[in-house]
Design a protein around this nucleic acid. Structure first.
Lengths: 143, 143
DNA sequence: TATTGTTATACTCTATAACTATA
DNA sequence: TATAGTTATAGAGTATAACAATA
């Protein structure tokens, strides 16, 4: 099989393409996809997420999460709140402005992503989503 | 739809995982996946590939290809040959040693990749390959 | 004029190690 | 002793701009 059909190569190219397109969609709000992923996650959460939770979900090193939360905090989009249960833990929660930005840029990012996936039908997108989830080990493998 | 089901996010995580695993497989030969991709491509080619060809196939900037070819040349795995047709163009061709290394590390890299895709059946891998090709626009979209 | 390869530069991402404060 | 967050640092990847040689 020729190298250009290597799944790792195809995945890397596709990922780069999607990240570039998403970054372009987020750029006018001064965000990049990694910062936005943190913002989107904490907006989905009720009580806020610890930085450790964020690191695990995003598969990032905790030290990287520090920098991303710093960026969002500097932009006034999130705050760090002390956890009532554990004084080591800081819960990252969105500000009002952060919630608004998340909705707005989320829509633009989703639209851009949809453009990138234009060649795929809805059911093909579902298939792709399921296969990717299996690759990263989030779902149980078929027995 | 929760952010963790975002196709861009899943793609990015999957890509990172595959690249990491492949880099680990190539490490004992002092290669990384980007260098290996150049080596693999020129080994498939009969007459060698120009750096411009490589940049296009790999979706890299030509200046990045310069650095990758430099690395491989320093390791004695490829050579730059003047093109008979165009004195601006340099054809990148593997050395004998380069061909040997490509076969050996290619097998290890393929095995590692197969491990990473362990949860997927053969037909699912084909499906994934086809969907990724469509995303990056290599294939004609379904009409 | 346009293209091939090249150099230079800056920024982002990734990977580790070590430190602090709490548990 | 282990965990959450943090700082620091180095290396790899990405993105542009500009240049020389050649077409």
């Amino acid at each position: 099989m020729p190298f250009v059909d290597n799944i790792g190569f195809l995945m890397s190219r596709a990922s780069g393409q999607l990240v570039r397109a998403t970054n372009a969609a987020l750029a006018e709000d001064g965000l990049r996809v990694r910062q936005y992923s943190v913002l989107a996650l904490v907006c989905e959460s009720d009580a806020g997420l610890s930085q450790r939770d964020l690191a695990e979900v995003l598969a990032l090193d905790p030290s990287q999460v520090v920098a991303l939360v710093d960026d969002l905090h500097r932009a006034g989009l999130v705050e760090r709140r002390p956890s009532p249960a554990d004084r080591r833990t800081k819960l990252v929660v969105p500000t009002e402005r952060g919630r608004g930005v998340a909705v707005r840029v989320g829509e633009r990012a989703d639209a851009r992503l949809a453009d990138q996936l234009g060649a795929l039908s809805d059911s093909e997108r579902d298939t792709l989503r399921a296969l990717l989830s299996r690759v990263i080990g989030l779902d149980v493998p078929a027995v």
